[in-house]
Amino acid sequence: TTVEVQGVEYRFDNPEEAEKFAKKMAKSLNLRVELHGNKWRVE
């Protein structure tokens, strides 16, 4: 599972970890998070 934060990609073996990371990043950067296939995008 991939998390893309403002163009930078982070890879996770565990989808739940990816989701937690994406939501945490979105909250700290005041952005929103969307799931596209198996990629979380924070923008």
Rank of each mutant, 00 (worst) to 15 (best):
V5D: 01
V3N: 00
R41M: 14
L35I: 07
K39S: 10
V33Y: 14
N14H: 09
K39I: 15
L35Q: 09
E34L: 08
E17C: 14
K27H: 15
E34T: 14
F21T: 01
V3M: 01
V5T: 03
K20R: 12
Y10H: 06
L31N: 03
P15A: 12
P15L: 05
P15T: 07
N38Y: 05
E43N: 11
R11M: 12
V3F: 02
V8M: 09
V33W: 07
G7H: 04
E19I: 06
A18C: 06
N14I: 09
Q6P: 01
D13G: 08
K39Q: 09
F21P: 00
V3K: 00
N38C: 13
A18K: 00
Q6A: 10
N38T: 09
T2I: 15
E17Y: 05
D13T: 11
F12D: 00
T2P: 04
M25A: 08
K24R: 12
W40F: 07
V33I: 11
L35G: 04
E43K: 07
L31M: 14
H36A: 08
T1F: 15
R11G: 06
H36M: 10
N14E: 09
E43V: 14
T2G: 04
K39G: 11
A26F: 02
K24F: 15
V8T: 09
V42Q: 03
G37A: 06
Y10Q: 02
K20A: 13
F12K: 01
K23P: 00
Q6H: 09
F21M: 02
T2H: 07
K27D: 15
V42W: 01
K39C: 14
Q6F: 13
G7D: 04
L31P: 01
L29I: 03
R11N: 12
V5P: 00
E19R: 07
E16T: 11
Y10W: 08
E9W: 06
N14F: 09
K27T: 14
A26K: 01
D13L: 08
A26I: 01
E43S: 12
K27M: 14
E19A: 08
K27R: 08
T1R: 08
S28T: 14
K23D: 06
L29Y: 05
V5E: 01
V8N: 06
M25W: 07
F21V: 02
L35H: 11
E43R: 08
Q6D: 08
D13M: 10
W40R: 01
T2M: 12
T2K: 06
G37S: 05
M25V: 13
A26Q: 03
E16A: 12
G37Y: 04
D13F: 09
E4I: 14
A18L: 01
N14Q: 08
R32F: 08
N38H: 08
E19M: 06
N30L: 04
K24Q: 15
E9S: 10
G37T: 03
V8S: 05
V5H: 05
L35M: 08
L35C: 11
N30W: 03
Q6K: 09
H36T: 11
E34I: 12
F21W: 06
R11E: 12
Q6T: 07
V3G: 00
K20M: 11
W40Q: 02
T2Q: 07
E9H: 07
G7W: 03
A18Y: 00
G37L: 07
A22I: 03
M25P: 00
K20Q: 11
E16L: 12
M25N: 03
S28R: 14
L35N: 06
K39H: 09
V8P: 01
N14R: 09
R41G: 04
L35P: 03
K20W: 08
F21Y: 07
E17M: 08
L29T: 03
G37C: 15
D13W: 08
R11A: 10
P15F: 10
S28I: 15
V3L: 02
N30A: 06
A26M: 03
A26E: 03
K27F: 13
S28L: 15
K27A: 15
E19W: 08
R41Y: 15
T1Q: 10
E34D: 06
N30E: 06
E16P: 04
A18T: 00
E19V: 05
A22V: 03
T1S: 11
G37W: 03
A26H: 02
N30Y: 05
N14T: 12
H36D: 12
G37E: 11
A18Q: 00
E34N: 09
R32G: 10
G7F: 04
E34Q: 12
R32D: 07
E43G: 15
R41S: 10
L31W: 05
A18S: 02
V5F: 08
R11P: 07
V42K: 01
Q6R: 09
H36F: 12
F12I: 01
E16V: 12
Y10A: 02
F12H: 01
R41L: 14
E43Y: 15
F12W: 02
V33H: 05
V42L: 10
R11S: 10
V8L: 09
L29H: 06
E4M: 11
T1A: 11
R41Q: 10
V42I: 07
R11I: 13
T2C: 13
E43F: 15
V33P: 09
Q6I: 09
K23C: 14
L29C: 14
T1K: 06
A22E: 01
E34H: 12
K20D: 12
E16K: 11
N30R: 06
T2Y: 14
G37N: 10
V42G: 03
D13N: 10
A26G: 12
M25L: 10
V3S: 00
K39F: 07
L31H: 04
R32Q: 12
A22N: 00
F21L: 02
F21G: 00
M25I: 14
A26Y: 02
E9F: 08
K39T: 14
D13E: 12
T2V: 14
S28H: 14
A26T: 01
E34G: 07
G37V: 04
V5S: 03
N14Y: 09
E34M: 10
N14G: 06
K24D: 15
E4R: 06
L35E: 04
R41E: 07
F12T: 00
A26N: 02
R32V: 12
Y10M: 03
Y10C: 08
E19C: 09
